[in-house]
Design a binder for these strands. Structure first.
Length: 269
DNA sequence: GATCTATGTAGAT
DNA sequence: TCTACCTAGATCG
């Protein structure tokens, strides 16, 4: 379930469970074994997220960089640790809890300079206090590329994935193929502020809910709950189902290899 | 049990 | 624009 909120939630959880104490780090699967041995037993200093990237900082020259990709997962449990099941890339064991990482796109040990290089390729993250939405707007307003593609470009802004993209475009009545340069500053400021609210909520509850109460199926009697991703949304994966606002069937198409969902009536061209 | 699909990205073409 | 990566839940039969 990895959009930015998932990684920030993990960072928060790992701060609580592991930061400030020595951590046993291993790689039952073996693919991370040599790096794990370099941080095994050291005190975890910080855990933080930038966009969809997670960083476990052990020292100035030892940070574990994790990207979950499409199917990576972390799971955390109370000690004692169980025998590893399946392909566990990295296992952490602290004073009270242990955690397993499976299926990440990236799990690597970096120096602080390498971390800086990774982060320099990321745009502002709506979930970080240091984020400047104008940096995103500068790129968006200079681009003929569609806003739907720009929202997934992690250099433009970091942390938004396919669900938040679809939902924020719906909530602002923006057609996905609108060129970036047609998005004015006022609209972008509203979309950014909305992402901050939606994604902070996602960090808090651990799932993506974007539907206003008055639009919920219970209130409208219009459509059954759509729960495939664990939350309540307007358009994501609701192809052919009636729009919660106007009843028009939700549309889907492929855009740059990703599924795109929108309401043809609420988001006119 | 087999098959399909996906909230992502890098690298090849 | 295409493919590989590599996991789990949903769906099919």
């Amino acid at each position: 379930m990895p959009e930015g909120h998932t990684l920030h939630r993990l960072a928060k959880l790992h701060r609580r469970l592991f930061v400030g104490a020595p951590v046993e780090v291993s790689s039952p699967q073996g693919r991370f074994a040599s790096s794990a041995s370099l941080v095994d037993g050291r005190v975890l200093k910080r855990a933080e997220a930038h966009g969809k990237h997670l960083f476990h900082v052990y020292g100035p020259d030892a940070t574990v960089h994790v990207h979950l990709g499409l199917y990576g997962t972390f799971d955390e449990h109370l000690l004692p640790a169980a025998v590893p099941v399946g392909q566990v890339r990295m296992r952490l064991a602290g004073r009270t809890h242990w955690a397993d990482l499976r299926g990440p796109t990236v799990c690597e040990l970096l120096t602080s300079a390498e971390v800086a290089a990774v982060r320099s390729r990321l745009g502002p993250d709506p979930l970080r206090r240091d984020a400047d939405p104008d940096v995103s707007f500068t790129r968006i307003s200079a681009s003929r590329t569609s806003i739907a593609v720009l929202l997934l470009d992690q250099k433009v802004l970091a942390g938004v994935g396919n669900v938040y993209r679809a939902e924020v475009l719906f909530r602002h009545g923006v057609h996905p193929l609108t060129p970036g340069l047609k998005i004015d500053q006022g609209l972008w400021d509203l979309m950014w502020a909305d992402l901050v609210v939606l994604m902070r909520y996602g960090v808090k509850v651990g799932r993506i809910d974007t539907v206003r109460p008055e639009h919920l199926p219970e209130a409208t009697g219009r459509a059954p709950r759509q729960d495939r991703h664990g939350g309540e949304v307007y358009v994501y994966r609701r192809t052919g189902m009636p729009c919660l606002v106007c009843g028009t069937p939700i549309a889907m198409s492929d855009l740059a290899g990703r599924n795109l969902y929108w309401c043809p009536t609420c988001q006119p061209e």
